[in-house]
Design a protein around this nucleic acid. Sequence first.
DNA 1: TATTGTTATACTCTATAACTATA
DNA 2: TATAGTTATAGAGTATAACAATA
Lengths: 152, 152
Amino acid sequence: MTAGDDEESGVAAGLIRLSFLVQAVFARTSERHGLTPVQAKLLCVLAGGPRGMAELAGILGVEKAALTGLVDRVERRGLAERSAVPGDRRALRVTLTAAGRQAATAFHHSVSAELDGLAAALPAAERARFGASLSRLAAARGAPALFPAAGP
Amino acid sequence: MTAGDDEESGVAAGLIRLSFLVQAVFARTSERHGLTPVQAKLLCVLAGGPRGMAELAGILGVEKAALTGLVDRVERRGLAERSAVPGDRRALRVTLTAAGRQAATAFHHSVSAELDGLAAALPAAERARFGASLSRLAAARGAPALFPAAGP
DNA sequence: TATTGTTATACTCTATAACTATA
DNA sequence: TATAGTTATAGAGTATAACAATA
């Protein structure tokens, strides 16, 4: 950051610029798949297996009341379903339908391809180091993967 | 990506994880400053100088009709103002008020500090390389800086 | 005709508070 | 009492379409 710079050049500024870029790619890809960004995120989380409402709210970082509406809308579109949890009559479990699984997988492939295309602007060696730093930073804050592997 | 991985580990997955992390920091910081994330972004853009409505819509990536409401709300809160453009009676120019300038600066300092704290999880040498890669990627797509320096 | 900006309308997303049912 | 989830309400953000005024 030498005197005379007329644009920010620190790591913080880079994080913000890249983050908005990635979010724009995510939003555009969601839209191409007929989903809102939050719906896409929800489907990807559910691809890792069924979840309770409160659990989902925690993962997505929204209040449980907001989650009610989110699940209503994906359910109305046939992408997910609420079902009872044996042993606790208060609780519900949200599961992807076959269409929801397909939508989640298709979206995930698309967004990954778009972002790999973005990263292709870096030479291979630099890209590898960059990816390692990304993982290290995300792990340091416990950021969850978007598309967790389904349980065994 | 060896067989047996049960979590994504490519660059695309890292970009998504980090991006959501940064957006969460951005949102939390906005809220602490009494702003929505879009309002914070708008104020930071305006810190670079006055802008027309259509120009702002382009920078923020929203339709001009949506921008009307965004500017209404920051104007109602005394953070920005619409004024006439001499020579074109259709056009308006949006300018930060003194309070808006102060809010933009304070927010920018806070969010930069938060993100520098995030990046502090990397050793200095790796952080420098990482920052360089961030800038290169953002520049490759023409991503604008959040907080552009005011014109000379 | 094209451009600048607003209005009208509808929908998604979100939070807070109050509620029901079950544990 | 505490937990799981919903309903009610309000507001922000967004898009599309139709409009007014000016260029």
